[in-house]
Write a protein that binds this DNA or RNA. Structure first.
Lengths: 347, 347
DNA sequence: AAAGTTCTCCAAAGCGCTTTGGCTTGGCTG
DNA sequence: CAGCCAAGCCAAAGCGCTTTGGAGAACTTT
C-alpha cells in the first residue's frame, strides 16, 4: 500500500493525503479524520526511504562503537544502548550501530556523513584528546559526546558524570574510615573519564594529607580478570593497602574474588569502594548492596543522551548543550573501618 | 557531491557514471577507471536513501532486542552485536537495532516490514514456542533465528549451539568425577535454549543412573546476584550438592562468591561447571581457566548469524538453512573429584 | 560497399514521498 | 451584486539514484 493507492482509494490527491497524515493545516478536519482512519484500516506505512529522500531527514541516530585493539567490546555498551533505544523508540527514531576497529572510525564517520545515513551521532568512549570532535565538526554532523574530552568544555555538546568529584568523595570516604593506604584500580587512562577519576583520587588523598604511591595505582581494561590479577598483586605487597578504589564493578568483583581466595574478608580486612554504572546484569536487589559505590546509571545516561541528540539534530545551529551528573554515594557491605592491628603490624 | 555533479564534471551522463561505479559491463574500462578515480578524488558517496528508493534494497539488517519485563537487557547482547557488526561492516551492511518491551515486538516487526527499512532481521532469544516465527513468515520478511524454537527445525533458518549435548556431557563429566548430587542453575525455562539444557542435564543424570531432584534445579535470569542467591540456598540444604551445573558464567561467578563467603573452596569442596559464551568482559587469559566449562563463542555466533542473514536476504526464496554448533568442553580449576568424606558424612 | 554486430554512451522514466504554487469554491464585505 | 478572502484541494516539480530502451560510432561480415 503506497500513498498513491491510498489517495485513489479515498478519491483524494496524494498531496492532500500526505498533508492530512503529517498534520498540515491546509486540510479540513473531516478529511483528515477520514484519511487517518483509512490509513490505519489498511495499515499504511510510508516508505521510509522515499520520505527520507524527499525531506532530507533520516530520523536515525548513529552510534559508532569502537572495538579496542584487543577486540574488547565495552560491557557498558549494552545498558547504554538499552536506555538510548528506549528513547529512540518513544520518539520514532531508528538507531544505526556500526561496530568498527578504532583505525576505521574516521572512514565510518565520513561514510555516515556523506551518505546522509543519520541525522546525528553519539560519540562513545572519548579519549583524553579525541580527534573525532574536530572530525565531526568539520563534517558538519550533529553529535553528542557521552563523556568529555580535554577540549574546551563549551565547544560541543556532551553528557558526563562528574567523575572527578565522585572519586574525591570516594577517596575521602575511605580516608575518613581511617584508611591511609588506598589503592586505585582505574580504567585505561587514555580515556578522559579515567584521567578525571585519577585526578579526583589524587585530590582526595591530598585533601586528607595522604601520600600517593605509584605502585598501588593501576590502569587497565575494566574487566573482571584484571581486578582479580591486580588485587593479587596488591595482596602480595609488603605494605598491603587497606582499601581499594575501583573504577568498575567488574574490577571490584575480580578484586573480591582475589581477596576471598586469600582467606580474607572484603569490608573487614580490606575495604573496597567502586564506581557503579548500575549494569543491569550485576544489579543486586538486596537491601544492603554488596559494594559501597559511587553510583550513576549508565542506562539513564543512554536515555538522556538519545533525547539530547534528537533535540540537537532537529535544531541544527543551536548552541552546544552540556549536562554534568553527580553520582550518588551508596554505602554497602564492602567497606569498613581501617584495622588498627593490620596497619600497624604491617607498617 | 551528487551523481549529477560528478557526471557533469566528467562530461558523461549520470547513467554512464552510475554504471561505471556499479560494475556494469556497458562501459569501457578506460571510462570506468576515470569515473572511479574522479569519484574517489571528490570522495563521492551515493545517497543511501536515493539508492534504496531506486533499488528497493536497503543493505540493512534489523535486530529487534526485547527488554524483558523486569527491564533487563541480555548481557550476551553486546558480544553478539560485536561479532555481527564485524560481518556487517565487512559486507557493507548497516545494522538497525530496536530495543523494545516484549509487548511491542509485533508492532516493531510490522513497522520494519511495511516501512521496508531492512532486508532481513535476526530474531534474538527465541522462546520455546515463539510467535515471531509465524509473524515473520506471514510478513514475508527474511529472518534468521539465533537459537531455536520448538517448531519443526527445518521450517526456518537458524543457528544454534547444541545445548542438549553440551549439558549431557557436562553432567556426565561431573558424574564421572564421582558426584552424585548435582544441582542445576539454569536460565529462564520459557526460553528454548534453557529447556534443551535441562533436557540434557536430565539425560546426563539418567545415563549415569543418578536420580534427579526438583529441589536443586533452578531457573532464573542469568545474572550474577542470582547465582549468589541460589548457591546460598544450596549450601544451606541438609543434603548439600557436591557439584553445580550453571547456564552462564555470570551465575557461576555468583555461585563462587557464595561458596567463598562460606569459607569453602570451589573445585575442592564444591565443583562448578558452567556454560561459557565467552563474553569478552569475563575472559580470562590464564593458562588454566577459572571455570570448567562448555564453551562456545557468542561473538562468533553473531558473526556467523550476520553472514547467514545477508545470504538469506540477498537470495529470497532459497530454502531455509541451519547450523548446529558443538560446544567445546574445557577443564578448568572449578571442578574436582567428589569428596568421599563430605558425601558420606552428609548422606 | 551495404548490411549487420558490437561497443559505448545517453535521454528519460521511474522509485514513493514532500512541497511549491495555483485553482476552485463558498462566504463576506462594501 | 461585484469584488475579495480564506479554506480546501490539486498538479507537477523535485529529492538522487537506477534502469529501460535506444542511438551513434566503429568494426565485421558478405
Amino acid at each position: 500500500m503506497k500513498l498513491k493507492d491510498l489517495s485513489e482509494l479515498l478519491g483524494l490527491s496524494p498531496t492532500t493525503v500526505s498533508r492530512a497524515l503529517n498534520g498540515y493545516p491546509e486540510v479540513s478536519e473531516a478529511t483528515r479524520r477520514k484519511v487517518i482512519e483509512a490509513a490505519e484500516a489498511h495499515s499504511y506505512q510510508p516508505s521510509s526511504h522515499a520520505k527520507r529522500l524527499a525531506t532530507g531527514r533520516t530520523h536515525t541516530i548513529g552510534h559508532v562503537v569502537p572495538i579496542a585493539s584487543h577486540e574488547m567490546i565495552n560491557p557498558h555498551f549494552s545498558d547504554f544502548i538499552a536506555g538510548a533505544g528506549e528513547a529512540y523508540a518513544r520518539e520514532g527514531y531508528d538507531m544505526l550501530i556500526s561496530v568498527v576497529p578504532e583505525a576505521d572510525q574516521e572512514r565510518i564517520y565520513r561514510n555516515l556523513a556523506s551518505g546522509k545515513k543519520v541525522d546525528g551521532v553519539i560519540v562513545h568512549g572519548p579519549k583524553a584528546n579525541d580527534p573525532r570532535i574536530a572530525l565531526l565538526k568539520s563534517l558538519d554532523m550533529p553529535f553528542l559526546v557521552h563523556g568529555r574530552t580535554d577540549d574546551p568544555a563549551d565547544s560541543y555538546s556532551w553528557l558526563d558524570v562528574n567523575n572527578k568529584r565522585s572519586f574525591v568523595r570516594a577517596t575521602q570516604f575511605l580516608a575518613d574510615l581511617g584508611h591511609s593506604r588506598i589503592a586505585l584500580l582505574n580504567g585505561l587512562e587514555d580515556m578522559n573519564f579515567a584521567r578525571r577519576r585519577r585526578a579526583g583520587y589524587l585530590e582526595g588523598l591530598e585533601s586528607r594529607g595522604l601520600a600517593c604511591d605509584d605502585r598501588i595505582m593501576f590502569s587497565d581494561e575494566m574487566i573482571e580478570p584484571n581486578g582479580h590479577r591486580r588485587m593479587l598483586q596488591l595482596l602480595a605487597m609488603p605494605e598491603r593497602p587497606g582499601a581499594v578504589l575501583t573504577s568498575s564493578v567488574l574490577l571490584a568483583m575480580g578484586a573480591v574474588r582475589a581477596i576471598q581466595e586469600s582467606g580474607l574478608k572484603p569490608g573487614r580486612d580490606i575495604s573496597i569502594i567502586t564506581h557503579d554504572d548500575q549494569l543491569s546484569f550485576l544489579q543486586d536487589v538486596n537491601a544492603i548492596p554488596a559494594f559501597t559505590a559511587t553510583r550513576s546509571s549508565i542506562r539513564d545516561a543512554g536515555r538522556r543522551c538519545a533525547e539530547m541528540i534528537i533535540a540537537i539534530a532537529s535544531n541544527p545551529g543551536c548552541p552546544p548543550v552540556q549536562e554534568l551528573w553527580e553520582a550518588e554515594l551508596v554505602v554497602g557491605a564492602s567497606t569498613g573501618p581501617a584495622l588498627r592491628l593490620a596497619n600497624s603490624a604491617k607498617a
